[in-house]
C-alpha cells in the first residue's frame, strides 16, 4: 500500500515536470507531436527505471562503504552518461525497430535533469531499494503523462490565433502553468 502511494505521489502529485521543474528542456522541446512525445516518454521510463536501480547500488555498495560521498555527483553523472550509451548499444543490437523509434531521443536523455534528479532524490530521501525503483517508475510515468498531455494541447494550438510575440516558448509556458494548476488539484488525493 505504501508503495502504491509512493507511485501515485511521484507520478501525479509531485510530478517531476510540473511541480519539481525537472526535465523542462525535453518538455518544451519534444512536445510538438504526440508520437514523438510518447517515444520520448518510453525512452525516459526505460532509462529512469534502470538508473534508479544502478544509482542505488552504486551509492550503497561503493560510495557509502568507502566513505566517498563527496564524489557522489561526479559518479552519478558518469554512471548516467555511460548507462545511456550502454542502453543505446543494447537496444540497437537486440531490437532495431525499437532503436529506430527511440534512437534520437536516447542521447538527449543524458542531459535530462530528471534522471540526475531522480538519482539525487533517491539518495537524499534514503529510499530502500524497492522504494527507489517504485519512485523511479512513478516519476517516469508522470513525466510521460505530462509530456503526452502537453503534446496533445500543442497540436491543437497549431491552429489557434496566438499573439505574435507569445508564439513558441511563451504560450507553451503559459499552457504548462495551467496544466500545473490542474495537477495541483490532485494534492488532496493522499
Amino acid at each position: 500500500m505504501e508503495l502504491i502511494l509512493l507511485f501515485i505521489s511521484a507520478a501525479i502529485i509531485n510530478n517531476f515536470v510540473l511541480s519539481y521543474f525537472l526535465g523542462i528542456c525535453p518538455f518544451l522541446g519534444v512536445s510538438k507531436k504526440i508520437d514523438a512525445a510518447f517515444s520520448m516518454g518510453l525512452a525516459v521510463i526505460f532509462v529512469m527505471s534502470i538508473t534508479s536501480v544502478i544509482s542505488w547500488l552504486v551509492n550503497h555498495l561503493i560510495l557509502i562503504p568507502f566513505h566517498l560521498e563527496i564524489l557522489q555527483y561526479v559518479v552519478f553523472i558518469l554512471v548516467i552518461a555511460s548507462l545511456v550509451q550502454f542502453v543505446e548499444m543494447v537496444i540497437k543490437k537486440i531490437s532495431p525497430p525499437l532503436y529506430r523509434a527511440l534512437g534520437i531521443f536516447l542521447p538527449l536523455i543524458t542531459t535530462n535533469c530528471a534522471i540526475l534528479g531522480l538519482a539525487l532524490f533517491i539518495s537524499l530521501r534514503e529510499y530502500s531499494f524497492i522504494q527507489g525503483l517504485v519512485f523511479g517508475l512513478g516519476a517516469s510515468v508522470g513525466f510521460t503523462l505530462a509530456l503526452v498531455i502537453m503534446a496533445g494541447i500543442r497540436e491543437e494550438l497549431e491552429t489557434a490565433d496566438i499573439p505574435e510575440s507569445l508564439k513558441g516558448a511563451g504560450i507553451t509556458l503559459i499552457v504548462a502553468g495551467i496544466l500545473s494548476l490542474a495537477f495541483m488539484g490532485f494534492a488532496g488525493l493522499i
Partner: peptide, 13 residues
Amino acid sequence: PPGAFFMLGIILG
C-alpha cells in the same frame, strides 16, 4: 509552481 510558468511565459512574451 504554476506561477513560475505563468511569469516566465509573460516575461518571454
